[in-house]
Amino acid sequence: MTEAALSPMPAESLAATADRVASARARMHRRFLEIRWGLAGPALLVIGVFGIVPLLIILVYSFLKAGSYGGVEWGFSTAAYVQFLFERDIFDEQLRFATDYLQIFARSILLALGATVFCLVIGFPTAYFMATRPASSRNLWVFLITLPFWTNLLIRTYSMMLIIRDEGLINDFLLWTGLTGRPIVILYTDFAIGLGLLYSFLPFMVLPLYASLEKLDFRFVEAAFDLYATRGRVLRRIIIPLAKPGIVAGCLLVFIPAIGAFITPLMLGGGKQMMIGNLIALQFGSSRNWPFGSAASLILMALVMIALIIYVRSSADRSKASHG
């Protein structure tokens, strides 16, 4: 056997064959790369033209001077960033530390965090309920969750106003039952914004949670029960850790759009309770301060990215710790 395989082929031709194989492989590899870039091309083009380029424009604008009637004047200036933290006194031109914009940022972060937490608390049991239905009825539940998307967010927010305003459904009911003598002010408060965010973004929490809970192998749950775990511990030690990708995805999908929300705070906060989104819109609108609007957008983006980096770092650390 071995003799027959070795003897008829001289060493020379062996080397030649090896060369041919290697070059064929290299050609295939190149072709493979070409195809891959070819396929990714359109997506890269769209991201480049409509994502990166605008971002660069914003970055440049944030370091320019504001034009008196909107737009920008060419000339380097850090005024936009200074304005974020300091206020120039009208009389002596002194810079003084001012917290007005910081407050808006803080409110946005708190509201977005609150909305995320409440979405998670409400969304998890909902998703768990959906995932534990018989397979045949699960699609119906998913359909019901996506039902709100059939109506424009503006309309939904407007109907929310009708429900929570002083003469709205809730207050009418409370007055009718005699629980309160005067209507409770809900509309145009931070609470109203939080409620609106919760309502608008709840499906974005439920759907990824459902996706990961639906894939959850309930044999792990049974094994945990068999190993003396109570219901609460099964939830904490098995279900939540295994659903973690869904939890993370849901939280990001709620937090990121919530922190930049525009319509909800505009309508339910009545312009009195601003969020970052409104502040930015204002700069490109009536305030006519494009550089400041650009700077605010970039600061918002930086905040989100810092939060993400911190998250990724901490989860990487934790998984390393549990390995060691």
């Binding site: 192998d217 044999r219 792990f220 049974e222 094994a223 945990a224 068999d226 190993l227 003396y228 775990a229 109570t230 511990r233 030690r237 098995i238 850790p241 295994l242 549990s322 390995h323």
Partner: peptide
């Protein structure tokens, strides 16, 4: 206690954590 047909080892825990699970509970 059960040794399951599919083993059902907790994928997010190490071998030691799997073995310790029942004892912890």
């Amino acid at each position: 206690n059960t040794v399951f047909q599919s083993y059902a080892l907790f994928p997010h825990m190490s071998v030691a954590q799997n073995i310790a699970f029942g004892l912890e509970m």
